[in-house]
Design a protein around this nucleic acid. Sequence first.
DNA 1: CGTTGATTTGAAACACGTCAATTCTTGTGG
DNA 2: CCACAAGAATTGACGTGTTTCAAATCAACG
Lengths: 223, 223
Amino acid sequence: MIFSALPQYVVDAAEWFSGNVADPKKRVCAAARRPIRDLREIEGALLVCSGLVAITSVDGSGARQTVGLRYPGELVVPFCTSRNVLIETIQNSVLDLTDIAAFAAALSEKPEMESVLRSVGNRDLAIASEWLARSGFRDAISRLAHLLCESYCRMGVDPGDALMLPFTQQQLGEITGQTSVNVNRMMAQLGRAALIERAGRAIVVKDWLGLTRLARFDAAYLR
Amino acid sequence: MIFSALPQYVVDAAEWFSGNVADPKKRVCAAARRPIRDLREIEGALLVCSGLVAITSVDGSGARQTVGLRYPGELVVPFCTSRNVLIETIQNSVLDLTDIAAFAAALSEKPEMESVLRSVGNRDLAIASEWLARSGFRDAISRLAHLLCESYCRMGVDPGDALMLPFTQQQLGEITGQTSVNVNRMMAQLGRAALIERAGRAIVVKDWLGLTRLARFDAAYLR
DNA sequence: CGTTGATTTGAAACACGTCAATTCTTGTGG
DNA sequence: CCACAAGAATTGACGTGTTTCAAATCAACG
């Protein structure tokens, strides 16, 4: 892998969470494309052991916009109790859940984790800001390219390797702010431009440099 | 005022910062529409005493997207060292600056502030997420309406009172992801719909309920 | 092997961007 | 306090990227 894995503080947070917080340990296997209703009920936090989790804002009219993704090893710390925010699985996932009380209790026992969690929060904010910039002044195809680049990095996949993209085109649209119809056309265009090669949902990047240039992708914000 | 002011933890953070961190106290008066180059050089944090500060991402091609705003009493904590993120004043502002070393030192002396700062970070993340949702599935006029509602709330202004909007239409465009030309048209449309009344940059909301409904604004995410 | 959901493709409508010119503000120096 | 310059707001015409609607094909799964 040419990419560094997750930053150290993310790893630290995950290890602390899985060792000290998720107690009583509640590990669940969630099917793909399912809202995690447990989490909303207990107002808790979770660790993505494997799979992929989306944080999606749902409009009154049913429109949906994903505002964050959590890859394996990353935490979902509740930052917004808004009723119209859903936590959903993208693919089959294994998750460690906890309620907010246990989370707070474990934190007060180990206050040095506060600063680690603050770093994790800063990273989440940096990613959200990058998404905002992306959705602001990039066109549809660049936004998709950017998401591909980010996914490769956050999953620690080498660009030369195939990436089994867990997203449906509908979900890609919810993340990048466009319709699934347009996602389809843009993905086809990425293929025609020889930047990627597709076989179903599997993706191989044929021209990483070209893809990052199109997306104006700079991985600095992931650390 | 029918709105609560800033959340308590935001006030706590501001008081702690201004009392213990900004030392040697470095208070600057910055003119409107100026990048705060000091901040980038020292890699520090700042407190907005008065005025308004924007965090803006700048594209290689010169396109700009504002990813965050800081109103009086709010902190700018550096969360991203990326070179293409600018901290700029929107209007004449008074700011307390500090470098990152002093910030960290003061924090280690008062570790209970960690959790306060984490709350502040969570609020920033919640706001960024709301902005993401807004830019994803709302049209241009709703995005503007949403920003107006948020500004009223974060500035603690009563909707019946006039709000001196510090933004140029160019800046409104950078925040809501559209061109200044379109901002102009949408503002005129808000006026024709009798939701607001304009006199130069001063704004009075004539129909707060209608405005919030158009924006689908729910202030919960600000707390 | 049929049903359900995902992908793909086409045609038409429209929101928004781009370009350009004019008027109006705002700020500054004489 | 006025004159001037620089920037901001406003308006129109036109182009285009994206959405919408609709239908057909393809893949997954019981």
